[in-house]
């Protein structure tokens, strides 16, 4: 009866105001059967990582049109690592110059998708990279439940 779903946070960091592209992606991922948490525009790296943590997402998709990706991405990745969320798949979409792609990937960004990318390509990418392995190890859960249960007065 397990019904695991891929959970994705779509966020728009930075100061540029329009989020049409981000919404198109959000809908496409929903239509592909994923649970998409949409957080809106003008998110700080702190807000994005806090939401990713609370929502326990598998994927964080960042839409960045402002050109500030080389400042925003390292900060977001660092905060994710600090929260122990290194396993979260970070994707960046928007206008990213070719020469920035390699540095972003070196930082830990899993995929960079330019304006021409089809939503299908993104869906496939996520599906191929998020497996059930990212689910919390179930045998460990049982052990912890038993441990706490036996501590009860």
């Amino acid at each position: 009866m397990t019904q695991r779903k891929i959970r994705v946070l779509i966020a728009k960091p930075g100061l540029d105001g329009h989020d049409r592209g981000a919404k198109v992606i959000a809908r496409a991922l929903r239509d592909a059967g994923m649970e998409v948490i949409y957080t809106g525009i003008r998110q700080t790296p702190e807000m994005i990582v806090e939401a990713a943590l609370q929502e326990d997402v598998d994927v964080v998709g960042l839409s960045i049109l402002s050109g500030a990706h080389m400042a925003l991405c390292p900060r977001i990745l660092e905060l994710l690592r600090r929260e122990g969320m290194d396993d979260v798949l970070v994707l960046v979409g928007g206008i990213i110059p070719d020469e920035d792609v390699a540095p972003l990937k070196a930082l830990g960004v899993a995929g960079v998708f330019g304006p021409g990318t089809s939503t299908r390509e993104i869906v496939e990418f996520i599906r191929s990279r998020v497996s059930d392995a990212s689910a919390v190890d179930a045998s460990g859960l049982a052990a912890s439940a038993v441990a706490v249960g036996s501590e009860r007065p």
Binding site: A26, R30, D31, E35, Y38, T39, G40
Partner: peptide, 14 residues
């Protein structure tokens, strides 16, 4: 139809 969902309430809770 898809089993997916678009969860947008956080937008108002910033």
């Amino acid at each position: 139809f898809s089993g997916g969902a678009l969860l947008g309430d956080r937008v108002r809770m910033r």
